[in-house]
Design a protein around this nucleic acid. Sequence first.
DNA 1: CTTGGCACTCGTCGATCGAGAGTGCCAGAC
DNA 2: GTCTGGCACTCTCGATCGACGAGTGCCAAG
Lengths: 347, 347
Amino acid sequence: MSEDRRLMVLRAIVQDYVQTSEPVGSRALVERHHLGVSAATVRNDMALLEEEGLIHAPHTSAGRVPTDAGYRVFVDRLSAVKPLGSGERRAIGQFLEGAVDLDDVVDRTVRLLASLTRQVAVVQYPSLTRSTVRHIELVPMGSSHLMIVLIVNTGRVEQRVVDTGRVLSDGTGEALVATIRARINEVAAGVPFTVAATRLRRLVDEADEADRAAMEAVVSALGDALVEEREERVVLAGQANLARAGTDFPRTIGPILEALEEHVTLLRLLGQLGDDPDLVSVRIGSENPVTGLQSTSLVSMGYGSGAERVASLGVLGPTRMDYPTTMASVRAVARYVSEILDENQAT
Amino acid sequence: MSEDRRLMVLRAIVQDYVQTSEPVGSRALVERHHLGVSAATVRNDMALLEEEGLIHAPHTSAGRVPTDAGYRVFVDRLSAVKPLGSGERRAIGQFLEGAVDLDDVVDRTVRLLASLTRQVAVVQYPSLTRSTVRHIELVPMGSSHLMIVLIVNTGRVEQRVVDTGRVLSDGTGEALVATIRARINEVAAGVPFTVAATRLRRLVDEADEADRAAMEAVVSALGDALVEEREERVVLAGQANLARAGTDFPRTIGPILEALEEHVTLLRLLGQLGDDPDLVSVRIGSENPVTGLQSTSLVSMGYGSGAERVASLGVLGPTRMDYPTTMASVRAVARYVSEILDENQAT
DNA sequence: CTTGGCACTCGTCGATCGAGAGTGCCAGAC
DNA sequence: GTCTGGCACTCTCGATCGACGAGTGCCAAG
């Protein structure tokens, strides 16, 4: 008995089950796929596959269903990522083309992924930690308040308002603001966040005694912004697709929706990519550490401008999922978004 | 037969049904509420209420269930908005206190509302149309690009990158940027969007011939930002709560989730508030024009800084909902958020 | 106008049963 | 040794049926 054929049978089972969502029996298999053998032979192979834990029969007289391990073998050894149709490719381009700023890119991306894969799409915001400061702007507000606007190389903008504790609207005040603006940009512009944070702190000591309080206020607000946990944000779309996949989930989709609202755990999940960041990563069913998502699979990939992968995106769906097509869509979108970010980075 | 008692019966039916989620019969009613009459009398009243279309029997031998019209009467005439407990009041404060910027306020608000009401929360971003320009900053990027940062009085920030088509890094370039910056702030700062858009357009004609192209680029990007549809954004949370309310929805929650992803229609819905913007607005079941949301009720209220209501927030749940408590939560949160925005506005 | 009584209606629940699908295994063919 | 056809067996699913119970509507009397 050839191991090859056994794997062919597994592949056929996965394909049929994904398409029909019903346990597949030996008869149906030989009819739909022209394996050159009889149903009885297939049955023997199935028994073996079941022993190996790759498929499983819901009950004695039902067909077989792939296990998580079965899907894993399918994804790793039995399938090729389907290249996307040119129509879809064009659609991606058109849909993302009109994006006007970073928020908009993320927003469009997540919707696009959801409608492309008809599953739940998850997009992580480009992380700040690997980002650099492009420019810092100070805008006086009222007499003593200052709005700090931090512009990041990814195109993102953060703002804070601080009270400097002294009048800024007179001549010396304006001069002070100008000085601070010049100093902080001098040390921070073009510099990675981590470095910028350190350098900025030094500025406080160097400042004139009279101006130290104001500088202190600005720098400490900036320090906050630079380590801000908002770097860790995700956006979702397509939750409605969960409802459509009715029979695929054990009881209800409640636990899944709940897990999806835990953005923190979601982010942790997205953070754990495979070894090669250029490859699509697939986490199948119980491989998934998060309670509530163990009946789902996550197909994800890193994206970002330049060589660095600054964030991840992906889709989440039932383990009974068309992996080749889904993986193709995720990969295509991740690449396209990366391109867009590259363009926008336009030093 | 007193009309008063009939309404008491209606109220009792609503209360019981909300609590038990099962059709309520005459016997159960007289037991749980000490109406001073017998079950038979209540049955007569029920027959009348049914004629009026306020309640309805799912089938011949089941109890009664309020209709949408019944809930409407309940909300309008039979219930008072329950004041919130001091514990909850404090929780709201603590939860929203730590917000660091506008995005964060919105984010926390929507989560808070969802967990407070155990329903789907919807928060609209403060709309730009009624906003005024606080400041416009120009930041040179590369040799000919300019990043435009628009700071809004609500604390929101918009940015755009434009290509001015000429070198900005030399002396005259820098002078040009300074001039443009000065001119646009001169005419636009502190001015409502609609007015600012008009005035800015005029600047192009007034500009020196040599600088006109650059000015044109900046102004047209700003024009876009000022009418930008991103003003219309909503954030959701608590979709998982829909799944919990299992029996409350006819078939599945699919259509509802789908409707919730149509942010445009959601926004339209939120926009149609009641007459008095200071009152909680309730839209019950079929009163709701959106297909897919006709088995749900939307409890919403405007919020915003100052006297103006710049946006709305609310929660969406099954028509079988604890209206008094929900309305109380929505109102409390809306007021609190308004306060926070007021503080941050700190002219 | 209210009340107790009573016949009637229906939906729910559980049990029973037959049909159909699919398996496991065995004995024979290649 | 591997494959194949055949056959008995198992198990789920859906339909049918009947008893049960909740709740109503109506009537005649207080």
